[in-house]
Design a protein around this nucleic acid. Structure first.
Length: 472
RNA sequence: GGUGGGGUGGCCGAGCGGUUGAAGGCGCCGGUCUUGAAAACCGGUAAGGGGUUCGCCUCUUCAUGGGUUCGAAUCCCAUCCCCACCGCCA
């Protein structure tokens, strides 16, 4: 959430910011509602102060009279009752006026709040302006020394690559038919070595982040209340992307949502807390199942392991002091971790500076990491894919946008409470990462070499061999 | 799921209709004393919003949301959460 004070001071910055992100929000109405809200609040407060003042004045008097009433005779009783009625009627006009103001405010506040939640964080000035992800800017590329990115896979390796769909089928790594039978489209089963490979990658990535980079390992809920979804910025705009568990329909409890990333559980942990500054930066990592409805993606990437409803992800977050320099430092650090990981896995990748249109409402800056997937991309004249980049990681820098929504603060040296900065990044998401892994490490004979760093997690398996009988 | 007991400031804990934003204690900060420290003593110590002549003023918050009342931490209703025991259970 943005700081409403900044919006009052400089609306144009937010109007431009939303426009650059292609996000349609009614800032004029918000400012208008904000003005009304403040005026009404001030009036209400004045009345309330008066009411309290009167109450303090007459309260003890009423108390005393009521005490007298008990021991009074009939004649005195009438006189006392009269005084009481008189006293009690004093603040009644105030009461109705306060009620009226309350009612008006109750109408305005939800609209005000809803609009405020929709205002995007303006992108940083150094983020390129664009209209779609086509305008994202490539920053750098990396490939293992034996792979030349300017040449095709076939030119590099001397044989035509198979797309991952063929590989998983021939190696018996996944079963799409039965996955779809059980759960519908975009569901799958990892079978045998497929599951073994996924677990190896997750575990390798998780061990790396918690051991070498000293992130604190966490296991967090993936079924969370709406507050957490709103707080982390995934709601209200992305509400249709989350699976909704309507517990309230059962007569009690509250609704829950399946999270699309471990970030929600990690960031939600410290919501509504004032953190000890000595604890910062908080570096955490989790490995969690992620659920995405993929609403609006109908027809896109329907085949294979690329876009599915349920997957596993190692996620890293950093909560640090509200300092731009420090924030930027952690962003670079997290991207560096992913680069190290992908280099260990010997997977070609590139870093992309996302343009304003691709940032989403919450980010000030976002770097995507894309891996080279030989089985993706345009088809050539023979119907073979030319290969293409596919997004596997995304590193976000949010300033205090998320912590403000989550009401997550720390106390600075002067004793003031300050909203912290937050960042997050994918360490590894599977099964999507299996696509470049299988496609890049495939051999001419149809087998797939297991990178050295994964072998200890694969019970020493160095090569995935084709299976001739169908799995199971 | 059933029954019973609870949710009050950073923490413990009193208050159960009227100067109670909240006693007392712990913790924390400042001071006195001391060569220094401890102890003792004195003082201070919530968050958020609005206004401000920048001295302050004011509103909201005692789990949450409604209600009763001139006035609610205190009474009523609903919900959530926690604890104990029983039932079920990986």
């Amino acid at each position: 959430m943005i700081d409403i004070k900044l919006l009052r001071e400089n609306p144009q910055r937010f109007i431009d910011g939303a426009a650059a992100k292609n996000i349609n929000v009614d800032i004029t109405t918000l400012l208008d509602l904000d003005e009304q809200k403040r005026l009404l609040t001030r009036q209400r407060e004045e009345h309330r102060a008066e009411q309290k003042r009167i109450s303090k004045e007459i309260g003890p008097l009423i108390g005393k009279l009521k005490g007298q009433l008990k021991s009074a005779n009939a004649e005195e009783r009438e006189e006392i009752s009269e005084k009481l009625t008189d006293l009690e009627s004093k603040p009644s006009s105030l009461k109705t006026e306060i009620q009226r103001l309350d009612n008006t405010l109750a109408e305005i506040e939800p609209q005000w709040n809803d609009l405020l939640l929709h205002i995007p964080q303006p992108a940083d000035d150094d983020v390129p302006r664009g209209t779609s992800d086509d305008d994202n800017v490539q920053i750098s590329t990396w490939a293992p020394s034996d792979f030349d990115l300017s040449k095709s896979f076939a030119e590099n390796r001397g044989f035509e690559p198979k797309p991952h769909l063929e590989l998983v089928s021939e190696l018996g790594l996944a079963d799409f038919e039965r996955g779809v039978k059980m759960a519908g489209t975009r569901h799958y089963i990892l079978t045998g070595n497929g599951m073994r490979l996924q677990q190896a990658m997750l575990r390798y990535a998780f061990d790396l982040i918690i051991n070498k980079y000293e992130f604190t390992p966490m296991a967090v809920p993936v079924i969370l209340k709406e507050d957490c979804m709103v707080g982390t910025g995934f709601f209200p705009t992305g509400r249709d992307q989350a699976y909704h568990i309507e517990e309230s329909n059962r007569g009690s409890g509250h609704d829950l949502f399946l999270t699309g990333t471990g970030e929600v559980g990690l960031m939600g942990m410290y919501a509504d807390e004032i953190l000890d500054a000595k604890l910062l930066p908080i570096k955490m990592a989790t490995i969690s199942t992620c659920f995405r409805r993929e609403a609006g993606a109908a027809g896109r990437d329907t085949a294979g392991l690329y876009r599915i409803h349920q997957f596993e992800k190692v996620e890293q977050v950093v909560i640090c002091k509200a300092d731009e320099t420090e924030s930027r430092k952690w962003h670079k650090e997290m991207i560096g971790i992913v680069e190290f990981l992908l280099q260990q896995l010997q997977l070609p990748y590139r870093l992309l500076q996302c343009c304003t249109a691709d940032l989403g409402a919450k980010n000030a800056d976002m770097i995507d990491v894309e891996c080279w997937m030989p089985g993706r991309g345009e088809l050539d004249s023979e119907g073979k894919p030319n290969g293409g980049w596919g997004e596997t990681h995304s590193a976000s820098r949010l300033y205090d946008y998320q912590c403000r929504r989550l009401n997550m603060r720390y106390r600075d040296e002067d004793g003031n409470t300050v909203f912290a900065h937050s960042l997050n990044n994918t360490v590894l998401a599977s099964p999507r990462i299996l696509i470049p892994l299988l496609e890049m490490h495939q051999q001419e004979d149809g087998s797939v070499a297991v990178p050295a760093c994964l072998q200890p997690y694969m019970n020493g398996i160095t090569m995935l061999e084709p299976v001739h009988a169908p799995s199971m």
